[in-house]
């Protein structure tokens, strides 16, 4: 698959997921087994009204979407995927007003499972706000 076609498909993928769309997620980049997706700060996504910090759940949704997109972009992936489990570590509060950018990488696949690592940061890429590890269903393409 060409890069252009992959990019187009990835964009369509995000836009076809009502929840990702509702959270304003935007596709940034995709390649063989990795994806980058960002999400804007929005007053509706705030988890702590005193500080304006985004709710962890919205960050989870971003990580989950990004992980799924990374799995689907894997060269050996035959079809869609579903999350088996996802663990998120919240390292610090995301700075209010800043976009959150996530990147997910598939680091291993078997015939039926894809293992993914992901991290997310705001405008300070040196200090991630969250990290995630997950297992996703995987169907290896027969070639």
């Amino acid at each position: 698959m060409t890069e252009d076609k992959k990019t187009k498909l990835a964009k369509q993928f995000i836009e076809a997921l009502p929840h990702s769309k509702a959270l304003g997620m935007e596709f940034e980049a995709i390649g063989d087994g990795f994806a980058e997706i960002s999400m804007p700060w929005d007053a509706r996504f705030v988890g702590d009204p005193e500080t304006g910090v985004i709710h962890g759940g919205a960050v989870s949704a971003l990580m989950d979407t990004c992980g799924g997109a990374a799995v689907m972009s894997h060269p050996q992936s035959a079809q869609g995927t579903a999350t088996i489990d996802l663990r998120i570590d919240y390292m610090r509060a995301a700075t209010p007003g800043q976009r959150i950018r996530a990147r997910a990488d598939v680091y291993h696949v078997t015939r039926s499972v894809a293992f993914v690592k992901a991290s997310a940061h705001d405008d300070d890429p040196e200090n991630p706000v969250a990290a995630a590890t997950g297992a996703f269903t995987f169907q290896m393409a027969t070639s």
Partner: peptide, 17 residues
């Protein structure tokens, strides 16, 4: 709250939240 519109199924992120 939907993630997969074809099934359809709730989004894993919405479930986590």
């Amino acid at each position: 709250l939907i993630g997969n519109p074809i099934l359809p199924a709730l989004h894993g992120g919405a479930i986590a939240a």
